[in-house]
Design a binder for these strands. Structure first.
Length: 721
DNA sequence: AGTCCTATCATTTTT
DNA sequence: TGATAGGACT
C-alpha cells in the first residue's frame, strides 16, 4: 500500500484527517480503496490508534471485506469494523440496563417473522381477528415506519383519528410492552435504543465519544434518520468523521433510507465539511457509463456529477426484445453459451439481474434444461427456514427464558401433546400470577390437565432449565448436540421421509455451529448474536464456477464482466406505474443505474412482451420500460432474437411430422457496417449479409482490401465496436 | 390432539 | 406456482 496508488481526489479524501469529510464516490470509483487506505494512513502515521477508529457498514460482508483488506496492509487489531446493527447491539449488551431495568444483557434480537408472531398474539388479544386491515404484515410495516420516523406511542396516539388509527396506536403500545416482557429488541431498536440511551445517560455517550475518535461510514446514502442521528451523536464531540456514498445508488428509500442525508443533512449538521467527488471509474467501459448516466440524470433530486471511464469506449450495450419470459431466459442462455465459446469466458463472469425474486424461476428452469450451472443469491434465507427457526428457538429460549416467541415455537415441537388450548390456559395462569409463560409451566398441576400432559410439561420445563444452567459450562458445539438428542429433534427429521430436505438443513446448521465454535471459540450467546444479524448475501462466493442470479438490490457493490438486466417492462422495472417525476420513480431509475453499472465489459438489456404472472395459465402483455426510451441511443445496439424452441420436422423415411424440442436458436449478431476480427484475415468491415441465424453468410472487406464470403457459424468472428 | 385435505393468497426490494 | 392457514375428520 502506498499513496501513489491513489488519484488526486482519492488522495485528498485520505489526507483529510481532521474534521468532517463528505465523499461522493460514484460506482466503481474506488470507494472501498479510499476507506481502507484512509484507515491504513491514520494508523501508519500514528494520527489515531487502531482502537480509536470505528468503521460502519451496512452488511456483514462489507464489514468483513474491509477488515480483511485493512489487515493485509497493516496490523490493525483493535479497529472496530461492524454494521450499524452489530455496533448498536454491542452498545446495548453493555448499557441496556441503564436504559430500562426490565431489560438484561441477554436480550433476544427479533427479526421480521418474530415481530409478526408478537403482532398475531396482540391481534388475538384485542379480538381483531376478523378485520382484514389488522394483519401482521401490514402492522409490521406500520410499526417499522413509526420507528424509522422516531415516533413514540404518544406521537402516534396524538395523530390517531378514527377506529382504525386508534387501534393501531394501541397495538403499537402493546407491541413495545411485549418486547420488554420478552427481553427482546427488534432490528430498529438496535439503532433507536442506543440513541435513547445517549439522550438519557450522558456518561455512556461520553465514553463512546472518547473511545472512537475517528469514524468512517460506508454507503452513507443508505442511512435512515435514526442511523444518521446515531452517527451525529458519536461524532458530535470531535467531529472527525468521513462519510462515503453515492446518491445515485440510494435504493433503500422504501426501508426508510433518507437520500437527503447525503444531499443536504450532512452539510447542515457538519457545516465545515470538506466535499470531495470521485468521478473516475475503474470498472466499466464508457458506453456502459454513458448509458447508465443518460437514465439517472433525468432525476431532479441528485448531486451533479458524471463518471469518466479509464477503460475506453468498449462495446455497445445490447438490447434484446423477446416475445415472452421463456424466450427471454433462452436469449440469456444462448448469449452466455455463445460468449463462452467465442471468448472463452467462464460461468462466474456472468450475472443475471432482475427486479423481483419471482423472476428467477423461469430462468432457473431454462438454465437447468440447458445445462448451465447457476447459483441464486437471496430468496428464502437459510436462517428463515421453519426447521432452522424451530431448532434455534431451543437455543434462544435456553439463553433467554423470558422469550415467549421462542417458547411458543417449540413447546409443541416435536409434538408432545401440548396443544393450543393448553397453551392458552398456561398463558392465563402466567398473567394471573404475574410470571413469565415459561415459569408458569411449573404450576401446570394447578390446571385441569390430563396426567400425561402434566408430565410432558414438567419434563420440558426441567430439561430447558437444565440446559440453561449448563450454558456457561458447555461450548455451543457440544450444547447443540445434546439438545438435538434430548428433545428428539434429529430423530424426528431423520425418520420422516418427507422431511429429508429439512434434515439436511439441520445438518448444515450443525456444521455452521461447529465452524463457529472452532474459529471464534465463542459460546452460544455469541453464536446467536452473529446469526441474528446474518444474511445469505454474506456468504455469496464469487469464486465458484457458476452464473449468478440475483435481484438488483442484492447486486449493489458487486461487479461482473457481463451483466444481463431482465424484465425491462413498465410495471415490472420500473415496478409500479407511478408518476415519472415521483420519488418512487426516481428510486427505480437509480435501481436501473445500479444494475447497469455492475457491468465491466458487456451489458445486455432484455424485455418480454408477454409474461406469465403468479403461475397463471394466461399471460399478460407488457410494454417496454421507460428506461429504454430514456437511455442514450448511441450506447445501444438492438439484437434481434428469434427462438426456434420447437420445430416440426418431416421424417423423410415415413413422411410423418415430428416435433423436435429446441433445435437451434437464431441470433442476428452482425449488421452491415460492423467491424469484425477474423483469426486468419484480421480486421474487416461487413459489406453484405445473407440469410439469418445458423446459415447466415457475411461478406467482409478486410483491411488489406481482400473480400471474402464466410459462413458465420464457422468463421469465428468477433465484433469490435 | 394430531393429520390430512382444500382454499386462498401472494410478488418489490431486506439490515 | 408454491406455501400456508384453516377446516374436517380420525
Amino acid at each position: 500500500m502506498k499513496l501513489s496508488d491513489l488519484n488526486n481526489e482519492q488522495l485528498k479524501a485520505v489526507k483529510a484527517t481532521k474534521g468532517p469529510v463528505l465523499v461522493f464516490a460514484g460506482a466503481g470509483s474506488g470507494k472501498t480503496r479510499v476507506l481502507t487506505y484512509k484507515v491504513w494512513y491514520l494508523i501508519k502515521n500514528k494520527i489515531y490508534l487502531p482502537k480509536e477508529i470505528l468503521a460502519l457498514t451496512f452488511t456483514n460482508k462489507a464489514a468483513s471485506e474491509m477488515r480483511e483488506r485493512i489487515n493485509k496492509s497493516i496490523k490493525c487489531d483493535g479497529v472496530t469494523v461492524g454494521t450499524f446493527h452489530s455496533i448498536g447491539a454491542r452498545i446495548l449488551r453493555k448499557y441496556i440496563k441503564n436504559l430500562d431495568k426490565r431489560y438484561s444483557s441477554g436480550f433476544t434480537i427479533y427479526d421480521g417473522s418474530d415481530q409478526k408472531l408478537i403482532l398475531k398474539e396482540i391481534i388475538e388479544e384485542l379480538d381483531l381477528n376478523n378485520y382484514k386491515e389488522f394483519n401482521p404484515n401490514l402492522l409490521q410495516a406500520k410499526i417499522d415506519s413509526f420507528k424509522n420516523a422516531s415516533m413514540s406511542v404518544k406521537d402516534v396516539q396524538s395523530e390517531a383519528n378514527g377506529f382504525e388509527n386508534k387501534k393501531i396506536a394501541k397495538i403499537y403500545d402493546l407491541y413495545l410492552e411485549k418486547l420488554i416482557q420478552n427481553n427482546a429488541v427488534d432490528f430498529n431498536d438496535l439503532i433507536l435504543l442506543p440513541i435513547q440511551l445517549f439522550k438519557k445517560n450522558k456518561s455512556s455517550l461520553k465514553a463512546y465519544q472518547n473511545l472512537w475518535k475517528y469514524i468512517l461510514v460506508d454507503e452513507f446514502q443508505d442511512t435512515n434518520s435514526p442511523q444518521f442521528k446515531l452517527i451525529s451523536f458519536l461524532a458530535g464531540g470531535h467531529k472527525n468523521i468521513t462519510v462515503v456514498g453515492d446518491d445515485d445508488q440510494s435504493i433503500y428509500g422504501w426501508r426508510g433510507a433518507n437520500i437527503d442525508n447525503i444531499l443536504t443533512n450532512f452539510k447542515d449538521t457538519f457545516p465545515k465539511a470538506v466535499e470531495i467527488k470521485l468521478e473516475k471509474n475503474y470498472r466499466s467501459t464508457q458506453r456502459i457509463l454513458d448509458g447508465a448516466w443518460s437514465v439517472v440524470s433525468n432525476n431532479a433530486n441528485r448531486a451533479e456529477k458524471k463518471l469518466v471511464a479509464t477503460k475506453g469506449q468498449g462495446e455497445r450495450i445490447s438490447l434484446i426484445p423477446t416475445g415472452n419470459d421463456k424466450e427471454e431466459a433462452l436469449a440469456v442462455a444462448d448469449s452466455i453459451k455463445k460468449d463462452i465459446k467465442i471468448n472463452k469466458s467462464k460461468f462466474q463472469d456472468f450475472a443475471i439481474l432482475y427486479r423481483t425474486n419471482a423472476q428467477s424461476r423461469i430462468i432457473e428452469q431454462i438454465f437447468m434444461r440447458e445445462g448451465l450451472p447457476y447459483s441464486i443469491v437471496g430468496g428464502t434465507k437459510f436462517y428463515d427456514r421453519k426447521e432452522i427457526k424451530n431448532v434455534l428457538a431451543y437455543l434462544i429460549l435456553i439463553c433467554n427464558l423470558n422469550d415467549n416467541v421462542a417458547l411458543k415455537r417449540i413447546i409443541n415441537f416435536p409434538v408432545r401433546g401440548i396443544g393450543e388450548k393448553t397453551i392458552k390456559l398456561l398463558n392465563d395462569l402466567a398473567n394471573k400470577k404475574k410470571i413469565s409463560l415459561f415459569e408458569s409451566l411449573q404450576f401446570a398441576k394447578e390446571l385441569k390437565l390430563r396426567n400425561k400432559q402434566c408430565d410432558s410439561i414438567s419434563n420440558f420445563y426441567d430439561s430447558i432449565n437444565k440446559f440453561h444452567d449448563l450454558l456457561e459450562k458447555l461450548d455451543c458445539k457440544e450444547l447443540f448436540r445434546v439438545i438435538l438428542e434430548e428433545f428428539n429433534i434429529e430423530y424426528y427429521y431423520k425418520n420422516n421421509p418427507v422431511e429429508q430436505d429439512r434434515y439436511n438443513n439441520i445438518q448444515e446448521l450443525k456444521s455452521s455451529i461447529d465452524y463457529f465454535a472452532e474459529t471464534s471459540g465463542g459460546g452460544l450467546r455469541e453464536f446467536l448474536q452473529e446469526i441474528a444479524l446474518y444474511t445469505d448475501l454474506d456468504d455469496w462466493n464469487s469464486k465458484q464456477n457458476s452464473i449468478t442470479l440475483m435481484t438488483v438490490h442484492a447486486a449493489k457493490g458487486l461487479e461482473f464482466p457481463t451483466v444481463f438486466i431482465t424484465g425491462l417492462e413498465q410495471g415490472l422495472f420500473p415496478l409500479m406505474r407511478v408518476d415519472d417525476s415521483s420519488d418512487q420513480f426516481e428510486e427505480e431509475r437509480r435501481l436501473f443505474y445500479v444494475a447497469l453499472t455492475r457491468a465491466m465489459e458487456k451489458a445486455y438489456l432484455l424485455n418480454a412482451y408477454y409474461r406469465r404472472r403468479f403461475g397463471s395459465q394466461s399471460t399478460s402483455s407488457f410494454i417496454q420500460s421507460d428506461f429504454l426510451n430514456e437511455i442514450n441511443k448511441d450506447s445501444l445496439k438492438v439484437k434481434k432474437y428469434k427462438s426456434v424452441y420447437t420445430k416440426r420436422i418431416v421424417n423423410s423415411a415415413n413422411g410423418k411430422t415430428v416435433k423436435m424440442a429446441r433445435t437451434v436458436t437464431e441470433f442476428d449478431d452482425f449488421a452491415v457496417g460492423d467491424m469484425v476480427q477474423h483469426n486468419l484475415f484480421g480486421v474487416g468491415t461487413i459489406i453484405v449479409l445473407n440469410g439469418a441465424g445458423e446459415n447466415q453468410k457475411v461478406g467482409i472487406e478486410f483491411k488489406d482490401g481482400l473480400k471474402k464470403k464466410l459462413i458465420v457459424k464457422y468463421a469465428n468472428l468477433k465484433r469490435i465496436d
